[in-house]
Amino acid sequence: MERVRAFFLRNPPPWPVLRFFACVGVAWALLAVALSPSPAARTVLVAAYIALWACHAARPWRVPPALVPWTVLGVLVLLAAAPSAGDPGGFRPFPFAEGSYADGALAVATAPAWAHVAILARTRDLAWCVPAALAVAPARHLAAGGLPLWPTWLMWGTGFLLLGLAFRLHTALYEARLRLAREAVAEERRKIAREVHDLVGHGLGVVLLNIGAARRAGARGDGPAVIAALEEAERVGRRGVRDVHQGLVLLRDPAPADPPIAPAPPTAGDIGALVGELRAGGLRVDLDTRGDLGSVDPAVGLALYRVVQEALANAARHAPGSPAAVAVSVDGPLALVTVADRGARPGAKRPAGGGLGLVGMRERVTALGGTLHAGPDGTGWRVEAAIPAGGAR
Rank of each mutant, 00 (worst) to 15 (best):
F7K: 06
F7D: 04
F8I: 08
P14V: 02
P16L: 06
A22H: 05
L31E: 05
S36H: 02
P37W: 10
V44A: 14
Y49T: 00
L52K: 10
A54T: 11
R59E: 10
P60H: 06
P64E: 12
P65L: 07
P65G: 07
A66Q: 06
V68H: 01
T71I: 09
V75S: 10
A80N: 12
A82W: 01
G86R: 13
F94A: 06
F96I: 05
G99K: 03
A102P: 01
A105V: 07
V108E: 00
T110W: 01
H116M: 15
L126P: 01
A127H: 07
A127C: 05
C129P: 01
V130L: 13
A132P: 02
H141T: 08
P151E: 10
W153P: 04
G159P: 00
L161T: 11
H170Y: 12
A176C: 00
A176I: 00
A181G: 13
A181W: 13
E183F: 06
V185R: 15
A193S: 15
V200Q: 06
G201Y: 05
L204S: 08
L209N: 04
N210A: 13
A213K: 14
A214K: 02
P224W: 14
A228Q: 11
E231A: 11
A233P: 07
E234G: 11
R235T: 15
G240D: 08
D243M: 13
V244M: 13
V244Q: 08
L250A: 13
L250F: 04
R252F: 12
A255T: 13
P265F: 00
P265Q: 04
L274N: 00
G276A: 10
A280H: 11
G281D: 00
L287T: 02
L287P: 04
R290K: 08
R290T: 08
L293Y: 03
L293S: 07
L293H: 03
V296L: 07
D297G: 04
D297M: 05
P298D: 06
A299P: 07
V300S: 05
Y305R: 11
R306T: 12
N314P: 01
G321Q: 07
S329T: 14
A335N: 05
L336S: 11
V337D: 01
P346C: 06
K349M: 09
G355K: 00
L358W: 13
R362E: 15
L372A: 02
A374L: 03
A389R: 11
A389G: 14
G391C: 10
A392Y: 07
